[in-house]
Computed example of a mutant assay.
Amino acid sequence: MRTERNLTRSLDRVFARLDREPERPAHIDVPRMSRHRVVLFTATLAFYLAIIWAVVITSWLVRLDWQVMFFRPYQQWPQIHAFLDYYVVLGQRGPTAVMVAAWLGWRSWRQHTLRPLLTLATSLLLLNITVGAAKLGMGRLGPHYATVIGSNEMGLGGDIFPSGHTANAVVTWGILAYLASTPRARRWLSALSAITSLGVGLTTVYLGTHWLSDVLLGWAAGLLILLALPWFEPLIARTETALFDLRDRLRARRGRTAPVPAAPVTPSPVLLKPLPAPAERSAPAREPVSSARGPRAPIHRTPSPHTVRSERTPVTPVGSRRPPHADRLPRGTSQPARPVTGG
């Protein structure tokens, strides 16, 4: 009994804490495109274009890519190969999008807003458009499919540049920092997402599926999407308003088509006349005596309630049940002497 009471009290405290969270919390600010963010966006874009130019002209960066590829890290440290095979999943779009969408969906339900889910959808859409277009446009081959040693392998029909794993890790885990409710949480989550995404990128280099320049460009591509998200906040707000309006219209239409239930009829109070006294009830009403009395109408009395024999009050008979005899005397009295008759 004591254990059940403690468990009930703990659950009550948890639910009371959850119920304190207000609808559409006012302390969560929407990031805006400030001057600091514009400077970061411009610097990241310049870094992005510089990497592309360094690969196109087959500079020292391409030579570094080939040196790392010939180093073959997966042969130098084979003991961490099994762990990194699982760690690289943190950069795959499907599993990471499902995990982050589940968390943001719970936040949307608790805060009664669609902004977290809409922000995630917008960032993934921008990721697919920008990174996908860059991959197909530059057509670079990966290390396993390289043809000429020392070349940049550009325009050969590949889809390796920039690294999709790295860009996806930056956007998917960075969106948690972007939607953080406090500045302290935003700083910690930003550092954590940066380390995770760089780790995913270096893991692809270790496995030999990406060049080092692919990872650097993918990291810059994901960061550009996160920095540009405040420009899409008005569109996200309008989309949220439109979705809520659509929900309200569907509810109103469903309420019109559904049959309206009939209102319950409440019985009106009936005023009952007080019953007469028992003496007045038993005595029939007498008519005034008149000289010319017509035929008397029969009186219908209210039938008395029928009672079962078992419910009737037993009546104890008084005296003997035998019929009285004239020639018998009660006990204790002497009989008179009979006359003697004889011959």
Rank of each mutant, 00 (worst) to 15 (best):
T42Q: 05
M33N: 06
L49C: 09
A283C: 01
G155E: 06
L104Q: 03
W109A: 14
H300I: 09
P323W: 15
R247T: 07
T209A: 14
L176K: 04
E311W: 04
V98P: 10
E21G: 02
D85Q: 10
V265R: 13
F83S: 09
R13A: 15
T130Q: 10
A167W: 10
L226T: 04
T44K: 00
A279V: 07
L124C: 07
V98T: 05
G343A: 13
F232W: 13
P339M: 00
L246E: 12
S190Q: 11
Y86L: 09
W211R: 03
V171R: 06
T266H: 15
S193R: 03
L207K: 15
L243K: 02
W103E: 04
F15A: 07
R186F: 05
A16C: 06
L246Q: 13
K135L: 12
A292V: 12
L224C: 13
P303D: 02
A252F: 12
L202G: 05
G199M: 13
V215C: 01
S282W: 14
V260A: 14
R301P: 08
L207T: 09
P303M: 00
G332L: 07
T307E: 13
L217K: 07
G332P: 06
D19L: 11
P330V: 06
R110G: 03
K135C: 08
L40I: 08
G294R: 08
Q92T: 09
D19G: 13
A326Q: 08
R9W: 10
T333L: 12
L226V: 07
G155M: 07
R249S: 11
P284F: 03
G155Y: 05
T44C: 05
Q111P: 02
P324A: 10
L117T: 03
S108Q: 08
I28C: 07
A263C: 06
D85C: 00
A180V: 11
A297I: 00
H325M: 08
H144W: 03
R238G: 04
V38N: 01
A228G: 13
V88E: 08
L7T: 11
V315G: 04
R2S: 14
L120V: 06
L224R: 02
L114R: 14
V62Y: 04
Y87I: 08
V318R: 14
R338H: 13
Q76H: 12
A277Y: 05
W103F: 15
G294Q: 03
S213G: 11
E280M: 01
A180T: 07
Y87M: 06
Y206N: 02
R338I: 08
R72V: 10
H81E: 11
